Amino acid sequence: MSLVIQPIKAIPLIQPGDNLCQILFEALAREKIDLQDNDILVITQKIISKAEGRLVDITKVEPSDKAREIAAECQKDPRLVEVILSESKEVVRVAKGTLVVEHNLGFVCANAGVDHSNIDNTQSDEEIWYLKLPLNPDESARKIRSYFKERAGVNIGVIVIDSHGRAWREGIVGIMIGTAGVPALVDMRGQLDLFGEPLLITQIGAADELAAASSLVMGQANEHIPVVHVRGFPYPLSDETSLGDVLREKGKDLFR
């Protein structure tokens, strides 16, 4: 079976408190997509964060002394830095224009995923809104998966994705930050290669690979495609998977 990634274009702008599950269900109906078992919905974190009310107006944030000190070093708004610190376990790197942290969820990224793009700041000249990542993207994905199981009777997978840079290459790529049903890792160790030799270390970041492919379809600017429907994913769904499966222990992180 071919892997098919189909954009869902019938989704309105999401507001805090919106019933995202129902909105997704109705959008799929408008697109005439009949979900089947093993289909996957890939959802950008922005619409989940918006629905969950993860917006913050930094004009109402009082920066701490630590935030002011770091802001002077990286030349960012101290109020923004305070929000980033509140979302972080540890500051990993600080340089001009750069603040890399370990997010509360456990992964390392720039600015703790706090983002200003595709946020409506046109309503007031006095407010400056940013969006934080969902508190628990795995749980957000599980709720959506359960909703479709109960309402449509289908066993689907759901992943929540975000765009991250990488320590060793230029350019951002889509990565999984929350999963329900979609295996974060597929362990190929022990399977044979083309010449009959057993694979020793190969573990496939399957959810991340799907996130990157889906991000190509979604776009990064004004495309307004926050969700894609996937059919033909080459690995079976799994109930025993989470973001934690792909998080490398700090002692094994050679780029820290």
Rank of each mutant, 00 (worst) to 15 (best):
Asp125Met: 02
Val56Cys: 14
Val83Asn: 08
Gly244Glu: 11
Phe107Ala: 01
Lys149His: 06
Gln203Glu: 09
Ala141Arg: 12
Ala213Ile: 02
Val108Lys: 09
Glu102Arg: 15
Leu237Val: 03
Glu139Asn: 15
Ser86Trp: 00
Gln203Lys: 08
Arg68Ile: 01
Glu52Ser: 12
Leu185Arg: 02
Ile14Tyr: 06
Asp34Leu: 09
Leu210Pro: 10
Ser88Met: 02
Ala141Pro: 13
Ala152Trp: 12
Gly190Glu: 04
Leu105Arg: 11
Ile40Cys: 03
Arg79Leu: 00
Leu185Tyr: 10
Asp125Cys: 01
Ile144Tyr: 06
Asp138Ala: 05
Gly244Tyr: 02
Ile70Trp: 00
Ile225Cys: 11
Gly171Ala: 08
Gly174Cys: 10
Leu133Ala: 15
Met176His: 08
Ala67Ile: 04
Ala221Asn: 13
Pro12Asn: 09
Cys21Ala: 15
Val173Trp: 04
Arg169Ile: 06
Pro12Tyr: 12
Trp168Gln: 09
Pro16Cys: 12
Gly17Tyr: 08
Val101Trp: 00
Asp239Ser: 10
Ser86Phe: 00
Gln75Ser: 11
Gly165Trp: 10
Gln220Phe: 06
Ile175Met: 05
Gly251Ala: 12
Leu41Cys: 09
Leu199Tyr: 08
Leu135Glu: 08
Gly244Asn: 15
Glu139Pro: 00
Asp65Val: 05
Gly17His: 03
Ile48Glu: 04
Asn104Cys: 13
Ser2Val: 07
Leu13Cys: 07
Asn155Leu: 10
Asp37Gln: 07
Thr241Cys: 07
Gly165Ile: 09
Gly196Glu: 08
Glu52Thr: 14
Ser117Cys: 00
Tyr130Ala: 03
Asp187Ala: 02
Asp125Tyr: 13
Leu131Met: 05
Gln36Glu: 14
Arg151Trp: 06
Leu194Glu: 15
Met176Tyr: 01
Gly113Glu: 13
Ser140Ile: 07
Pro78Lys: 06
Pro226Arg: 02
Glu62Ile: 14
Ser117Tyr: 08
Leu55Trp: 10
Ser49Met: 10
Lys9Cys: 06
Lys60Glu: 13
Val92Asn: 04
Cys21Leu: 04
Asp120Leu: 09
His229Thr: 07
Glu73Ala: 11
Gly113Val: 06
Leu199Ser: 11
Gly174His: 11
Lys76Leu: 14
Asn118Leu: 12
Arg189Asp: 01
Leu199Lys: 13
Val100Thr: 13
Ile47Met: 13
Val94Ala: 00
Phe195Tyr: 03
Arg248Asn: 12
Pro137Cys: 09
Ser238Phe: 01
Leu24Ser: 11
Asp193Ile: 10
Leu247Met: 06
Gly113His: 07
Arg151Met: 14
Lys9Phe: 05
Trp129Arg: 12
Leu24Tyr: 11
Leu192His: 03
Ile23Trp: 04
Ala184Met: 13
Asp187Thr: 03
Arg231Lys: 10
Ala110Arg: 05
Ile84Glu: 00
Met1Trp: 08
Asp125Ala: 11
Gln123Thr: 04
Ala213Val: 04
Glu102Ile: 07
Arg68Pro: 00
Ile14Asp: 06
